[in-house]
């Protein structure tokens, strides 16, 4: 019978955890610029690793 208390408290804790994440996200500025990150995630990152190659041979 008292299992309902556990269930309610679990559901509330989950809700509050997500709510906290939301607050952290807003505070850290994730809602300030909603556009740039959507483009940034599409960039390949492999190129930035090879820096010590002075003159790359012509491509194509």
């Amino acid at each position: 019978m008292s299992v309902i208390y556990i269930l309610i408290s679990v559901s509330l804790v989950i809700a509050v955890v997500f709510f906290t994440f939301f607050i952290i996200a807003v505070r850290s500025g994730q809602f300030d610029d909603a556009y740039t990150p959507s483009i940034r995630m599409l960039f390949d990152s492999h190129k930035s690793t090879k820096k010590n190659k002075p003159k790359s041979t012509t491509k194509e």
Binding site: F43, K47, K50, K51, K53, K55
Partner: peptide, 12 residues
Amino acid sequence: LQDNDLTTYYEL
């Protein structure tokens, strides 16, 4: 840009 391996600039 080419000397510094940044030609992806022109691909995007």
